[in-house]
Structure formats: structure tokens, C-alpha cells
Design a protein around this nucleic acid. Structure first.
Lengths: 252, 252
DNA sequence: CCTCTTGAATAAGTCTGCTTTTTCGGCCTA
DNA sequence: TAGGCCGAAAAAGCAGACTTATTCAAGAGG
């Protein structure tokens, strides 16, 4: 199988056992996100059939999926045209993974970080109004565990608890889209780990702020929950800024 | 062609000239979003081939797209299983359209309204830091036109300008995901129109607030831009609340 | 010389029958 | 009862033929 994507970080998520569809999709997806297939470029089905040495049905199914992501447009008598990035479904988790694997990695991380900076404080505020008793208690418990893990210097555990904490706050907001958002953030965080862009040495203050959020939500003090979350986001944002100022890091 | 979706608002976006793929996708998408095909239900390809009287290739291509949206899961020896809503890509514009056509319409409108309530103030704040000279001027001009249209009572024109204004603010934030978000919001607003859920009688104060946002962004006063946008969002949110309190409206 | 019609070439869209692979579920043995 | 074997079911994949829409260019007519 000849590839478009230059065999870097690509195709790692779709190894041999994954089926032809997944492998071709993975390769074309990374190639488009990575710019190896530039917007405006034109392919045709037979060319892809030859290149990947798969049947027409496989190629056609992949093209349908790519079209639904806004990556391509097919026209009779013309072929398959690569679309410009502004048409892409940048909220699709799969697209985010591909972009994290591309040179636009830093931009992707920044976009999502800004997005959560906007959303999570509001989610905390909503959560204070809507959370159930048990949910609130668990949130407080989780904050306590984070505090312990942070104090003990157990970074791995802290990171897991951190992600779980934010997921629960978003879940408690009662907004399905906020919950989904956490999946995207998780993509970024795990991607950040994968590409060795990890800072995350929990500050003393961050530990306290998470506890504040949990407590404020439990006491249904929306404004306090929001302002504590704003501070958490400011810290997270500063961390990210530090990352992309030492940018240019080619990374694997 | 026999349908799953009960021939209501469905299949209106994919009429006869659209091709078999689009029509089958439309019908299955609305059926799943509408709950006619419940999570856990199992289909198989041949059944769909018979039901829609199309070939296997059409069905398989549709299934691949639905799978990439998190709607279904296919397993050998089992068939095609409908997945639970928490697996759906609720940020996909197509999914949003289907949900707006379903009984969960109100929930969808609420989710997105909450999302933009969270995002737009932050976008305004970012825009103040990043906007270019021309962009800022145009924003001020746009706010002025809105003011005129609002005063003249030209609702149609006001609505168009309103959408354009918010799009530009999001664009000026320099965050690609924020821009994409506006597409989703536009889906909701036009859906709201389509399903006759329009309030929108521009208040005097709203006119002033839009002008405030534009001016603050031009003067690079992020905090003032944000707080004005917060107030706009509060008004928009109140409008929406009014809609779903008179809920139960079956609508077309 | 320009416009309009026509028609042929092209590439996607659709259909069909076939082979391969995976996996479930029952059955058999230890 | 646990573990392994086997057969059937269904998706995955393949190959090729036919259909249809679109484009582009040549030729007819003004």
C-alpha cells in the first residue's frame, strides 16, 4: 500500500488488524490534515484504488466519510476535490486526533484550550444550580483525592483525577454538549502526553481552587464556582502558553 | 422506498434530486435521532437493502457515515447496532439538523444556547486583543446598521445583521473552532425560524449593547467587550427560556 | 466572430454476484 | 463445569458491468 501521509505519526491508530477501511481513512485523513494533499487538489477513485491496492467499495466508503467531515467534495465528471480547512468539521474527535498528529498541532491545542477556558467556568456556574446531592458529594471527594495526590507528588494519578474532576463538573452542568467537549479536551491532553508536550506540575494554588469549585457547587454558590474555575482556567492557559512559546519543537 | 422516519419534517433536506445515498442517510439519521430506531436495536444490511430498495453499496456507504457520527456500530456475525445518544457526535452540523427536526428540538436549542452563552463573551474578550483595524471598523459599522434596522423595525434585516455581527466577532477572536460554532448557532436560529419558534423583538438595550461590544473591541478594551457580550447573552438566553417554557408545542 | 446546440468522453453513482474473514453460539469432551 | 472445536451467520471486501450527470469542444447557425 502506497501512502500519501509521510509515514510519521500517522496510521498508528489504525494498525494492521483494523481493516482496510480504517487504514485508508486514517492515511487520507492525516494526509489532508497534514497538508500533503492541499486544498484544491483533485483525485479520482481509480487512482486511489490503485494507490492503496484496495477495491472500489473500500475507497468509496472512505470518501463518503471524508465528505461528511467536510474534507472533500465529489463531483461527476471532475473527481474528488480536497476542500479548504474552513469547511472541516473541527469538532469531530477524529479530526482533532489527525490535527494533533499534524504540524498544526499547536494551533489545535490552543483552540481547544481557549474553548474550554470559555466553557468550563459557565459549566461550573450551571452545575451549581443543577447538581444532585450525590454528584456534589462525589465532586468534593474527588477534589480531596486530587489534593492528596498533588501533595504526594503522584503526577500520573493527579492527571487522571484532574480529567475526571472536570468531566464530572461538565456532566453536572446538565448540558450534553459540554460533556462531549470533555472528550475533545481529553484527546488534547492525551495527545499532549503522546507528543511529549507535558508540563503539569500541580501548583499549591490549583489544588485549593479545585476544592473551592467543588465546595461552591455543593453549596449552590454559582458565582463562586465560576470565579474559582476561571482561575483554574487561567492557570491551565498559562501552562499551554508556556508550551507553544517553546514551539517549533518538531516532536516525533 | 419504505421509511423508518415517520415522514414528518424528515427527508425535506434531501429531496428527489439528491441521490440515493443522501436520501437513505437522511432517513436513517432522522429515524435514529427521533428515536424510531431505539438504542440497542439491531439491523442488518440485507434488511436495509430491501427496505429502501437500493443496492448494498449505497447502504454500506451510509452505514460507514453513520458509524463515523457515533450513531451505529457494526459487528460481524451480529449486524448493525444503534448506539446510545451519549456516543453521538453532537457537534456535527448534520446531527444538529436532525435533532432540530426531532422531538428533542428544545433540548438541542437549549444546549447550543448555553454553549454560545459561555463562548461568545470570551470570544469578544479575545477579539479585543487580536482584531485588525479594518475588522474592528467594520464591526462598528455593522453595529450601526443593526441599530438603524432595529429602530426602523425591520426584523428580517435585523436578524441577518445580528447573525453577521456575531459571526464577525467570533471570526475576530482568531479561533477557528469559535468560527465553526457560529455555523451551529446559525443552524439553530434558522431551525428556530423553520419550526416557528421565533421571538426576537429587539430591545432598545440590545441595540446599545451591540454597539458597546463593537466599540470596546475597537478600543481594545477586552473586559468591557466581554461584559457587554455577557449582557447580550443574558437577553438571548431569556428569549430562549421564554420559548421552551411555552414548550410542549408539537410544531410541524 | 460570437452564440447556441449537440454529442461524445469522462468520472462518479449504482447494481450484482461472488469470496473471505470474523465471531457467535452450541456441542462435545475431559 | 471449563475449555476447546466446529459450523453457520453476517459483515468485509473484491471484481466488473451498467447508468447517469457533467463538462468541454466541435460544428451549425446567426
Amino acid at each position: 500500500m502506497e501512502r500519501y501521509s509521510s509515514r510519521g505519526a500517522a496510521a498508528q491508530n489504525a494498525p494492521a488488524e483494523a481493516g482496510l477501511h480504517a487504514r485508508v481513512l486514517e492515511d487520507l485523513g492525516t494526509a489532508i490534515c497534514g497538508g500533503e494533499l492541499a486544498p484544491g487538489a483533485i483525485l479520482n477513485i481509480d487512482e486511489l484504488v490503485e494507490r492503496y491496492a484496495v477495491s472500489r467499495s473500500v475507497v468509496r466508503e472512505v470518501l463518503r466519510v471524508l465528505a461528511s467531515m467536510g474534507f472533500i467534495e465529489t463531483r461527476r465528471r471532475v473527481g474528488v476535490m480536497i476542500r479548504t480547512p474552513d469547511a472541516w468539521n473541527v469538532f469531530d474527535p477524529q479530526v482533532i486526533r489527525w490535527r494533533l498528529a499534524s504540524a498544526g498541532r499547536i494551533a489545535q491545542i490552543r483552540s481547544i484550550t481557549e474553548l474550554r477556558t470559555a466553557v468550563e467556568p459557565h459549566a461550573a456556574w450551571l452545575a451549581a444550580a443543577r447538581v444532585g446531592h450525590d454528584e456534589a458529594s462525589e465532586l468534593v471527594g474527588l477534589a480531596a483525592k486530587m489534593w492528596a495526590a498533588g501533595k504526594a507528588g503522584d503526577e500520573e494519578r493527579f492527571l487522571r483525577l484532574d480529567i475526571e474532576f472536570h468531566r464530572r463538573v461538565l456532566a453536572a452542568s446538565g448540558n450534553e454538549m459540554f460533556v462531549k467537549l470533555q472528550d475533545l479536551v481529553a484527546e488534547v491532553l492525551s495527545g499532549r502526553h503522546h507528543y511529549h508536550l507535558m508540563p503539569h506540575h500541580p501548583h499549591e494554588q490549583a489544588l485549593q481552587l479545585h476544592a473551592d469549585v467543588a465546595q461552591a457547587i455543593q453549596r449552590r454558590d454559582g458565582d463562586r464556582a465560576r470565579s474559582a474555575m476561571v482561575q483554574i482556567m487561567e492557570q491551565a492557559f498559562d501552562e499551554m502558553t508556556a508550551i507553544w512559546e517553546q514551539a517549533g519543537t518538531p516532536a516525533p
